[in-house]
């Protein structure tokens, strides 16, 4: 297990390097710089600014000095928020984004897996069609549409829940979490239904039934593990997506999270902030993919020791 983790982390290094390199040169190649909007800046001030941010050095030198900073865990100073480093900005936005992502993920897993299970128990009956049609609606209503609709209905027409904010008014975390979780819940529902149907048709489920086990035991003990493997594989990318997809929700509900910083950074050509966000998300993707792979290995003993593999 340790070796597996280690080798996966080693494999991630070139991936991250490619990501960093491509982003770095892409950003620098683009017309316009972080200070080009400020028309009235005297040339000497501009030069001083450029020197401060090392923009006067040759590009390749900037690249390596940035890599050096990164290796020490330093994302560099923000170009647009003078006096603050990218690390500080990420730290400021992370708690809200992480909390939102966590709630959304919880909603997605609980509702998704339950709906998938219920549907898989009696395929092609109403018990299957109703949750699956609902899931389809969840997939077809993107967050930028669902969010405003929820606000319109529950916030403005019914006035049940607050329409924006984060942690200020009780209940203001409900709508954003639902908005963000619903699409993922819908995908998870479809995945777990498919996985469960696949597993329930396996011979070993018939064996379990032939042993006279109660249906509940057959489902929970024998079918669930195998049936949830597609869901587990999906969770890694999903979690990264939850974070990167959050800028819509953060914008709609005015939540001081990471997503908004990052979109702002792109609009502002805040080089270091753009780089910081790309690297940060790439890192998240790598880590969460690894975690979901580790869970898959934990579930499936056949993956634990491949050299002894049976079939």
């Amino acid at each position: 297990m340790f070796k597996f983790t280690l080798s996966r982390l080693l494999q991630a290094v070139p991936v991250l390097l490619v990501v960093i390199t491509v982003t770095f040169f892409l950003v620098r190649m683009a017309p316009g710089g972080p200070f080009s909007d400020e028309k009235a800046v005297p040339p000497e001030v501009l030069r001083a600014l450029e020197a401060q941010y090392r923009l006067d050095l040759p590009l390749i030198q900037q690249y390596f000095s940035y890599l050096g900073d990164l290796a020490r865990g330093d994302f560099g100073p923000s170009f647009r928020y003078p006096g603050r480093s990218v690390n500080e900005l990420i730290e400021a936005g992370l708690p809200a984004s992480a909390e939102l992502g966590l709630y959304a993920l919880l909603i997605a897993i609980v509702i998704g897996v339950l709906a998938g299970l219920i549907a898989a128990m009696r395929p092609n009956t109403a018990q299957d069609y109703i949750p699956m049609s609902t899931a389809m609606i969840g997939i077809c209503l993107p967050s930028f549409l669902l969010g405003p609709l929820l606000v319109l209905v529950f916030g403005i027409w019914l006035e049940w829940l607050p329409v924006s904010g984060w942690g200020n008014i009780p209940g203001d975390k409900i709508l954003p979490s639902i908005t963000m979780g619903s699409t993922y819940a819908a995908y998870i529902a479809r995945l777990s239904r498919g996985g469960m149907l696949e597993v329930l048709s396996q011979d070993y489920i018939r064996t379990a039934r032939a042993k006279g086990l109660p249906e509940r035991v057959v489902i929970v003990r024998h079918a669930l593990r195998g049936g949830l493997i597609p869901v587990v594989a999906y969770l890694g990318p999903a979690f990264a997506g939850l974070l990167s997809g959050s800028f819509v929700v953060e914008t709609i509900f005015q939540i001081p999270g990471l997503g908004r910083f990052f979109v702002q950074a792109a609009f502002n050509r805040d080089y270091t902030m753009i780089m910081g966000s790309v690297v940060f998300f790439a890192l998240l993707i790598v880590v969460f993919n690894l975690i979901s792979d580790l869970i898959a290995v934990w579930i499936d003993p056949r993956l634990r020791n491949p050299s002894r593999g049976g079939r």
Binding site: A12, P14, V15, L16, V18, V19, V22, T23, L26, V27, M29, A30, P237, A240, G241, S244, G245, F262, V263, A266, F267, R269, I274, S277, V278, F281, A282, I285, V286, N289
Partner: peptide, 20 residues
């Protein structure tokens, strides 16, 4: 393909759109 999968594509597209 695996490497490309690890790119945070949403940010990437946003970046492309903003930059170009």
């Amino acid at each position: 393909v695996d490497i490309l999968y690890a790119l945070p594509f949403m940010i990437f597209i946003i970046l492309l759109m903003v930059v170009f």
